Simulated assay, not measured.
Amino acid sequence: MTNPFIPVPSRGSLSKAVESQIESAIRARTFVPGAKLPSELELCQQFQVSRTAVREALQMLSARGLVSIEKGKGIFVCNVSAETVTDPISLYLQLQYEHDSSLDVIHARQIIEPPIAASAALYHTKEDADRLVKDFEDLVKNQGDYTELSHLDMRFHLDIAKASENTLIPLILEPIHRLMPQIKSSVYENVKDAKESAVKWHKKILDAILRRDAEGARVAMIKHLEIAEQHVEQTLKRTEKSGTSKKTTSVKS
């Protein structure tokens, strides 16, 4: 293979320039997943920089999940998984998330999920259908463990995204859905008929998907998320009242 790299200019961050060139080569598939990169010494010679600059660049690429540094073996291009993409976004959202942002999460889902349900109705496979049926059955069987219930709820929605047979959709939706167990656990704990409502509307969505009724699935998802919004609003009001009550009690004591 001819040398794909060029010497980096002496101005600016040398390690950043090295990182950028290696990333560009990976994006261009000059080095495919599993391929071995030149050694540190060879990279130093090709970029005409110090070993320190090369090591810093490789550490940054490794932290981003693009390369794997295996001691005694070499430097290899990683197979980029969905988690490599979604984990940083999910972490950002979780760090930025505040309790008052619950409605923002629901509103985002109201925009995104109805057309996804319609696509799932049109394009799902038998394996998708079997998975959705199991998700629904597991939700029904749950006996009041709020945390587990919220995870089962979100699993159903993520599997609908996968059933759309569009590989980008789960990547977009998963970081948002990772916030939902925290929100849904609180909803299930504070809203008496929340599980009953989830079972009812999941069944309507599932039935529409299984009979390949795209419009029916879309409308059912819209109504389901409208009710979810109402439940979040009720939960926020109750937790606000509870917080106010605790503050009043504390002042009196």
Rank of each mutant, 00 (worst) to 15 (best):
E189P: 08
Q110W: 02
K73E: 11
S62I: 12
A214Q: 08
Q46I: 04
Q94D: 11
C78S: 13
L149W: 00
W201R: 07
G74Q: 10
Q234D: 12
R29Y: 15
A217I: 00
I116P: 08
I222S: 07
C78A: 08
Q94A: 15
K134L: 11
R27C: 04
L93N: 06
A82Y: 09
F136M: 15
A53N: 03
S242W: 08
L139G: 04
V8G: 04
Y97M: 06
D104H: 11
K184I: 14
I160Y: 01
R55E: 11
Q96T: 07
N190D: 09
A214C: 08
Y188T: 03
Q110V: 05
L225V: 02
D145W: 04
L171G: 01
A121L: 03
R238K: 15
S250R: 11
P88M: 08
T86W: 01
M1R: 14
V232L: 06
F136C: 06
E42P: 02
K16M: 13
T30I: 05
P170Y: 04
L95N: 12
G74R: 09
I69K: 03
D145V: 13
K241C: 14
T125K: 06
E137V: 05
Y92T: 12
V32I: 00
M1W: 02
S50D: 09
I116Y: 01
K73M: 08
K200N: 13
E137T: 01
D207N: 07
E98Y: 03
S62D: 15
T2N: 08
P7K: 01
